[in-house]
């Protein structure tokens, strides 16, 4: 631990940086309580909780939120299974094309969403599958798998190979070794990867736009609301939901991976 405290100039710079990052969030939060319904003036003329009750009655908002939660849950579930299997395969045995597969798995997160989106849309069109809930899920899974895969591969690399050997040495077959040794070791990595995947899926716009049919997820609903001046603060209320729903898992995931480091 450094004993000297940082110089004042550095403190100001850090404060400024954080302010720049987080000021917009406070603005969003603030206007969820404003009494104006179309224009945002600063400071707000008055504060009210009315928009929360308006939001509660908006069916379209709730449908969008439910859809987003469903998509995120299913995409995360898929990612957990496929990402883990891929990670174990890549980690365990060197096989022909292993590096290539590892690279191909990571690519979707590096590719711009718009490319993934267009690619998926043309591919889905080509096969004649109708756009639906499931096409959105598949679209999201492309980048959710990466997040899980990355977390699991990193954890596997830190797990000593000798632990797996020790387990087999003590009489455990491969399945028992997976259940008693590998899986418990991966648990927090899976949780962290899963939560990150969930948060990524939950606020995804671009890939969703290309893979959805008539459905609109919450982020898309918010975008569509911005062009309508009516009941503007309802959008802010929705944004507050999004912030809470994505922030909590990320915070939790962060905490969990930290606990792991310290033991």
């Amino acid at each position: 631990m450094p004993s000297k405290s940082a110089p004042l100039s550095l403190k100001i710079a850090v404060g400024g940086g954080l302010l720049f990052l987080y000021f917009p969030f406070t603005v969003i939060l603030l206007y969820a309580f404003t009494t104006e319904d179309s224009a945002f003036t600063f400071p707000p003329p008055g504060l009210t909780l009315k928009w929360f009750s308006v939001a509660l009655q908006r069916q379209d908002l709730w449908q969008a939120l439910t859809l987003s939660l469903q998509v995120a849950t299913v995409a995360t579930g898929l990612a957990l299974i496929m990402g883990t299997l891929a990670a174990i395969a890549v980690y365990r045995t060197p096989f022909f094309g292993r590096e290539a597969i590892s690279f191909l798995l990571l690519l979707p997160i590096a590719l711009p969403g718009i490319v993934t989106g267009i690619a998926l849309r043309s591919a889905i069109n080509l096969t004649g599958i109708p756009f639906s809930f499931w096409t959105v899920v598949v679209g999201h899974a492309t980048f959710c798998i990466v997040v899980v895969y990355n977390n699991v591969v990193a954890r596997l690399r830190r797990t000593a190979k000798s632990q797996i050997e020790a387990s087999m040495d003590l009489g455990a077959d491969p399945l028992q070794t997976f259940r008693y040794i590998v899986l418990p070791n991966l648990a927090t990595a899976l949780l962290a990867g899963g939560m990150l995947a969930f948060a990524l899926s939950f606020d995804e716009v671009i890939v969703t736009t290309f893979t959805a049919g008539q459905q609109s997820t919450l982020p898309i609903w918010i975008l569509s609301q911005l062009t309508r001046p009516r009941q503007r603060p309802v959008t802010n209320v929705a944004a507050v939901f999004v912030i809470v729903i994505t922030f909590l898992p990320i915070l939790l995931a962060h905490r969990l991976s930290q606990d792991r480091e310290s033991t």
């Binding site: 000798s162 020790a166 040495d169 040794i181």
Partner: peptide, 20 residues
């Protein structure tokens, strides 16, 4: 024979204790 079918046990260099 795989390791789990041999009546032989090992003390590993890094001990390989199960941390959980």
């Amino acid at each position: 024979l795989p390791p789990y079918e041999r009546n032989v046990n090992t003390v590993f260099q890094d001990y390989a204790l199960f941390p959980h």
